Simulated assay, not measured.
Amino acid sequence: MAREKFAQIYARAAERKGGESVLESMLSTPLSSEQLKLIGDDRWLAAFTQKVFQSGISWQVVRNKWPNFEEVFFGFDIEKMLLMPTEMWERKATDPAIIRHLGKVMTIPENAHMIHQASVSHGSFASMVADWPQDDITGLWRYLKKHGKRLGGNTGLYTLRIMGKDTFILSQDVESYLRNTSIIDGGRDTLKSLNATQAAFSEWQQESGRPLCQISQIIAFSNGDNRI
């Protein structure tokens, strides 16, 4: 089956959403490389931690508690996170000011270590993320999964999107489209599927000149139960 041209996908999404102007108003804009590099390592750790805690829990509950997380974990200062002994982490995991979950709390020092190592190699974690090539964005996903803790699945890539890194998202609608068009036919997170998905998005990006995040959103809007 020939891969659908992006212009066809866009036209279908615009029709479903009530026109091109409406569709365009719904699209995200990623940060530039220069803007991304201004984000501090502490903010990356905070973002990863928030997304880890939101997994399986109401996102709003986590947001409501978030000021307490910032206080309990010293603003996610990387050096302080790396110096805390295990006993202190265990105590903090029982603090009623936060959501008490030892397993998720213990992702903080591990992800702090990942961020620190990247900073040593690249000057900052943000610099590594900003310089990561768009034609290998799934490679960045794999990096987060391998070197971080609980950053596989959609957790790592949603955090990238929230922080402004240009990435597509394998949402339910996007995955459904990829399967319906036979771009992927096996496990979503297998290397074969990720490579096929990356190749398709790279091709659509060359056709459209759009950032990956917009391509991802337009595909989602063109497919599935999301009509206006």
Rank of each mutant, 00 (worst) to 15 (best):
N68E: 13
A126N: 08
S58Q: 11
S28A: 15
G123M: 11
L191N: 09
R142L: 14
G123A: 12
L178P: 02
T190G: 10
I9C: 05
E70K: 00
S208W: 06
M163R: 06
Q217E: 14
M26A: 10
N223K: 09
T29H: 11
Q8A: 12
Q206V: 11
M26I: 08
A112M: 04
L82F: 08
G187M: 09
I98L: 01
V61F: 05
G224Q: 07
P30V: 04
G75V: 06
G209V: 08
G18K: 05
H122C: 11
W89S: 00
S21D: 14
W59E: 03
T138S: 08
G186K: 14
D136V: 02
R161I: 07
T49V: 03
V62P: 00
G40W: 02
N180K: 15
G152R: 08
L36N: 03
Q35S: 13
G40V: 08
D136R: 13
L36Q: 03
V72S: 03
E175V: 15
S216I: 04
L45P: 00
M106L: 14
G187Y: 09
R3H: 13
G123Q: 13
R227E: 15
P133Q: 04
F74D: 15
Q60D: 02
E4Y: 05
E15Y: 10
H113L: 14
F73R: 00
K149D: 08
R179C: 05
F69C: 02
K104V: 00
W204E: 05
G56D: 07
